[in-house]
Design a protein around this nucleic acid. Structure first.
Lengths: 353, 353
DNA sequence: GTGAAAGCGCTAACAA
DNA sequence: TTGTTAGCGCTTTCAC
């Protein structure tokens, strides 16, 4: 752990050139004699100099090369959701060739008072992305704007200088709803994502409906209505996790007058519903149809494949990457709404006779 | 997107104080009259100054506050594995109060030539962590050492100035093996993690055995032997994913003389084996016992709970965090080996009569 | 309690 | 093609 590493000045001195020349030898930005560069490189090797200190370069250029990415609440929670992960993967891939790195910023939002992570306030970053919703009043977004850091929001609202990336989930859900109607279903229940940052588990009544503030949940509910469906029951889940889907499925399927189809707002929730149905001795789709949203690959549900609305997660990540690129060039890209597509699986069929 | 934000000098000028005084008003490191600070803060608000530019601070202090974390190959792959994710969560939690942020660095290792991600070479970071194995010849590790960046390696080898965090998987696997022996099993097969960076799917013969270079895989195989078990078959998986476990299970369980127990080196693999068994009409554990490693929560395997060796993932992440803290203080912490514990589930029982 | 001055390591005008 | 000079924004002695 050498305490004082050599600097460009040391290398320049050793090579017998000026610092600026040495700088050129590394950056390649400017004319320099091959022989001179050789000499500098050799001197660097001799001194065990591993290249220009990024801190100096960053201050000079005013750029950190860092993209702050605000991920959903506890990492653990948001990373349990393949939806976040796959999108993040697409994002990182897009950013890599641009020489940008992703700084993970946990979103403390909601649960623990409305504080923002200290990184949002103080970390160096050229641009930021909030990958899970967020309205204008999102504390993270407010803090970032205060710092003048251009930001892109995924599945949120596009406002003035904030870039927005989303999917056409309302239309997708409507299409899924029509599919169920065409199969002949009339008693359709829906299992939703959280209504706001304080998600609950349970049937939604009028009072709870009034507290719906998450856009994504709202749009997908609206899609169902767009299809002309009035759900016989709306069950809210506190998060997009298999176990919450199971809870929902148990509740919705064990009472009398059970629905003939359940439309869940995520594949994880839907798969939980399938498990609950199996547990109750119900056949899917003969006794009950189940559909999801996201188009995930769920090998453990085999031999079933979920009927689902497929969203292009990698492309979504890439779209965020491109938006970031634009913001770095000083442009505010127009909002992007990616298309989704219905994927028919083995979990939906005609209702029981 | 204002192109030129105010600097500390602007604020100082507006407040009618010197830059150094203004600096004190923000850092609080030094004596300053309350009234003066007030004035500075007010001036800052007026100018819409959001606090000292981290770039300047970083250059001055020589610290970036960034921890580079090299995650397994494609993010998508490594994040599909809850093992990485939960550990990362523990790490981020530990780092947050220290004011450190995590920079994600994809590990291009293996597959695509032996290049390292450009971030490893050029990004600013005070310290780094390689969270998935890595021997001394790991290209990332070599690059980091060349840059003089202190590093901690998880599940790797401890060498001179590199800190190491691991778990006692060899002993844990041995304990699991003895559990199977005590139940009466004699025909035991094992499903392993990849043998090296180029993992394969298939039975391991002598030739392949010679290519075993991943320590973690080796230790867990050795643990089985330590228990006095000579596996009737060793099946290598190309990654720790459910579908690979299913492949392994199909292969191992469909032949004649099938094993009465299968010991997998990860829970994801083990759960795939359980699915394959169910698919083949075999009851678990009546017809075949299945055990895993990691101690994950797999709600979709319900009502079964996997017999597994539980490793403390959050603690492991925290241990990495503490090692990082030590490295930042100039100390090289001694290697840490965390204990594991056997968790008996519903997937192991006596062999069929 | 406050200010003046130096400098962290680098790059980019500009001059030679 | 190379060197000189200035300065990115900040913190930190050290005087006062």
């Amino acid at each position: 752990m050498s305490s004082d590493r050599p600097t460009l000045a040391d290398v320049a001195a050793a090579a017998g050139v000026s610092v600026s020349t040495a700088s050129l030898a590394f950056s390649g930005a400017g004319p320099i004699a091959a022989a001179t560069r050789e000499r500098v490189i050799r001197a660097a090797e001799e001194l065990d100099y591993a290249g220009p200190n990024p801190l100096g370069r960053q201050l000079r250029s005013g750029k950190s090369g860092i993209v702050g990415v605000v991920v959903g609440d506890a990492l653990r929670r948001s990373f349990r959701d393949p939806v976040s992960v796959q999108m993040l993967d697409g994002l990182v891939r897009t950013l890599e060739p641009l020489g940008l790195g992703v700084l993970l910023i946990p979103d403390s939002g909601g649960a623990e008072q409305r504080g923002v992570d200290p990184l949002v306030e103080t970390a160096a970053m050229d641009v930021a992305a909030i990958i899970w919703g967020g309205t204008v009043e999102n504390p993270n977004l407010m803090a970032l704007r205060r710092r003048g850091i251009p930001t892109v929001v995924v599945e949120g609202q596009a406002v003035d200088d904030v870039a927005a990336i989303g999917i056409d989930d309302q239309a997708g859900t409507a299409e899924l709803g029509r599919h169920l109607l065409e199969l002949g279903h009339r008693r359709i229940a829906t299992v939703t994502l959280p209504f706001n940052e304080f998600g609950r588990a349970g049937l939604v009544d009028e009072r709870r409906s009034a507290e719906l503030s998450w856009e994504i949940t709202r749009r997908r509910i609206q899609g169902v209505r767009d299809a002309g469906i009035e759900p016989v029951a709306v069950w809210e889940s506190p998060a997009s996790l298999v176990e919450h889907g199971t809870d929902a499925g148990r509740a919705l399927l064990s009472g009398p007058d059970r629905p003939t189809a359940i439309l869940a707002q995520s594949d994880l929730l839907a798969s939980g519903v399938v498990l609950a149905a199996r547990e109750l001795g119900l056949r899917v789709p003969e006794d009950v149809s189940v559909a999801g949203f996201d188009g995930l690959d769920l090998p453990w549900l085999a031999p079933d494949q979920l009927t689902s609305v497929v969203q292009p997660l990698a492309e979504k990540g890439a779209a965020v990457g491109h938006a970031i690129e634009a913001l770095l060039e000083g442009r505010v890209p127009p909002p992007v709404m990616l298309p989704v597509s219905l994927r028919l699986g083995t979990t939906t069929g005609p209702p029981p006779a």
